[in-house]
Amino acid sequence: MVSVTGMDSTFEGSQYKEYPGSSYATYVDFDIYRNGAYFDSGQIKYITDFKWGQTYTTTYVNRGVFEELFIAPKALNETSGEVSVYMRTVPFITFIWGGLFIMLAGIASLVLVDYSVDGSSANTLPKIKGKRNKGTEGRKGGKK
């Protein structure tokens, strides 16, 4: 559960047209509760950029061993003081990162084992000299 503890807005950046800043940022402070007990506090930011006519948000991320928690603002209504947030928990994300690193280590070890000290490939087949390709024997112009 997320409980909003505070909300503060301010203009940021240099003056742009009739605005005292190039963007308007709203900071939302919150507390996170897990199973009814306090877990962590955080802050997300909702930014309206006047110069580019877009809105941006920052995301709260809590990385744990067995899960990652993401919280981001979806919508903001400053007149009523309401904020809608998106909250998602991704379980077992550490195993995905661990698997990626194990795979990269395996690829690196294969590449290192495949090449000898002088840089030539250790798995090249020896070339047989004086033999013709069997596919050309018996063809017109080929050796019979």
Rank of each mutant, 00 (worst) to 15 (best):
F50R: 01
G98V: 12
Y38T: 02
G130M: 10
W97F: 09
Y46N: 14
G130Q: 09
L112W: 11
A105K: 00
V83H: 01
N62C: 07
P126C: 12
V117Y: 11
D29F: 02
L76C: 01
Y56F: 15
A108Y: 08
E78W: 07
L76V: 10
L125H: 08
T136D: 05
R132V: 10
G135R: 13
F92H: 07
G6M: 05
K129M: 04
D31W: 05
K127G: 08
Y46R: 14
G135I: 00
K51P: 00
D8V: 08
G21S: 03
G99F: 03
F39C: 01
Q15S: 13
D31L: 06
I71F: 02
G21A: 00
A108V: 07
Y24D: 00
T48F: 07
W52F: 14
T59R: 10
N62G: 03
F30M: 08
I93H: 11
S120R: 13
S41E: 10
G42C: 07
S120T: 15
T136H: 06
W52S: 15
S3V: 14
F11K: 03
Y33G: 03
Y56S: 03
K129P: 01
V61G: 09
S120C: 02
T26S: 10
T89L: 13
V83K: 05
I32L: 06
I44G: 02
I32Q: 01
E78K: 08
S14F: 08
I47V: 15
S84G: 09
V90L: 04
K17E: 12
L76W: 01
W52N: 15
V65I: 14
V85N: 04
Y56P: 02
T58D: 03
V113W: 12
Y86Q: 12
K143M: 09
F30I: 10
G6E: 03
D118M: 01
P126I: 06
Q43E: 13
P73S: 09
V111N: 11
T58C: 02
T26N: 08
G141C: 03
K144S: 04
G81H: 05
V4N: 01
N62I: 03
D29L: 00
K51G: 04
M87D: 13
Y24C: 03
F66G: 10
S80P: 00
T5N: 05
Y24T: 05
N77L: 08
N133T: 08
R34P: 08
L125S: 11
F30L: 07
S84Y: 06
P73L: 08
G13T: 01
N77V: 04
W52A: 14
F70T: 09
S22T: 01
R34N: 06
L100V: 15
G138W: 05
